[in-house]
Design a protein around this nucleic acid. Structure first.
Lengths: 232, 232
DNA sequence: TTCAAAATGCTAAATTTTTAGCATTCTGAC
DNA sequence: GTCAGAATGCTAAAAATTTAGCATTTTGAA
């Protein structure tokens, strides 16, 4: 279960000019985590900014029944911890490594110093945060407007976009169900539907996307109002 | 239909020190809108920051059937337009005045100048944006986890918090339905249920909240995992 | 005061989704 | 190769939600 969703926003690291990225990196302590290891828990309040170097981080809340509800998964280049740095909120989610994951942690004092000395950083962090905000708002709109079949297709297309192997998405149906907030039965039905349309190929723990352009087109045909959001 | 939801985040204006607020105000052009007037449309790309002085602004997308799907409503002190300023996104929503509304518009060149000269502004905008991001993420979690009855209660509690008259929320059931993304029948049923629990009193275009503490407690009893998000 | 528009209350059928199983298939570790 | 665990496929009943009405009440403007 990799690249589940990073809400289609550009990672902070890809926005930073080289010098700034290097300076942040120099101030950071890299920490390695094994698959499934906890990076921080809900409620922790040790402040600092974290930047994902490799691997991915899943943010989730333990459900009443012991299962985890995944809110988002961020991949390399994305940062987290802004909430605690800027908004003075406690960690709202457990953060768990997905696969071998390296995270660079920058303590609040060090980050503050760089933030104050590098005026460009503020603008870029605002860019990253704003993009995430609007990506989440779009997702929220989708939940209210689109039938599950289309939402599922969109999610898969998004995952394919950020996957290494563009032809295939590694993700179990259960994970998809959690992420979309529906039952496994419903996801199974939606996936069957998409396979019937020849848009995806179901596998074991993976979903093949033979023709991403076709998938994108199929989605676009069913979300007429969202076209301009993608920047055209 | 006022104070529908501003996603429970603190408005930017309340975060700004007096001098900074004054400087922004001096650089802005105030524009008055009548109830229902369009402030901007989806797809517009004239960049600038807008700060709501009075009234409220509804952000929505016209649905295929002519109806509007409301994403959020922001009240006095909140700003909008960051997406276009920082993330280079086109306006994703129509912005429509709710009641007599005054909005201060700051052009991009003017805003950029202040932004560059006032280092404190960046941090405060990050605070406001991050708070909104996390408020939306929480709302998204709620959609997936909580039964409609509880979600409805939460929405009403949130509206009551930002309403002028704390005992009452001005909002039609149809608006509530749109905002929560469900049908009017479902909202009607949920509201009846809450009234049966003596938590609210239904009126015409309004919902009475005789005892907000009791409502908050009822919600807290049903959302055990969310307690810490409120900052305790 | 009257009246049209808006909002609510209600119903019942149709649809969607969940729940709770269980059988089967696939995978990787041993 | 075997085998346990993970993942999928499938079913059917139960629950929740939507759709499409229509009647009634409330409001504010003429």
């Amino acid at each position: 279960m990799a690249d589940l969703l990073d809400f289609d926003s550009r990672p902070l690291l890809s926005l930073l000019p080289e010098g700034l990225a290097a300076r942040l990196s120099a101030a950071a302590t890299p920490v390695d985590y094994d698959d499934g290891e906890t990076i921080h828990s809900r409620g922790d309040d040790k402040p600092g900014l974290s930047i994902i170097q490799s691997g991915a981080v899943r943010f989730a809340i333990p459900g009443a029944d012991g299962s985890y509800i995944t809110t988002s998964i961020l991949g390399p280049g994305h940062c987290f911890g802004e909430a605690i740095l800027f908004a003075h909120l406690p960690r709202a989610y457990d953060a768990i490594a997905v696969g071998e994951t390296r995270v660079e942690q920058i303590s609040k004092p060090r980050f503050d110093r760089i933030f104050d000395e590098e005026p460009a950083l503020a603008r870029l962090m605002l860019e990253a945060t704003t993009q995430r905000l609007y990506a989440v708002l779009e997702f929220l709109d989708d939940v209210r407007r689109l039938p599950l079949l289309v939402r599922t297709a969109k999610m898969i297309a998004g995952m394919a976009r950020s996957a290494k192997n563009a032809e295939e998405v590694e993700c179990s149906q259960s994970d998809l169900a959690f992420t979309l907030g529906v039952s496994r039965v419903s996801i199974g039905k939606a996936l069957s539907g998409l396979q019937d349309e020849r848009l995806i190929v179901l596998g074991y723990g993976r979903i093949g996307v033979p023709d991403r352009a076709a998938l994108d087109q199929w989605i676009a045909d069913r979300t007429p109002l969202q076209a301009l959001k993608r920047g055209e």
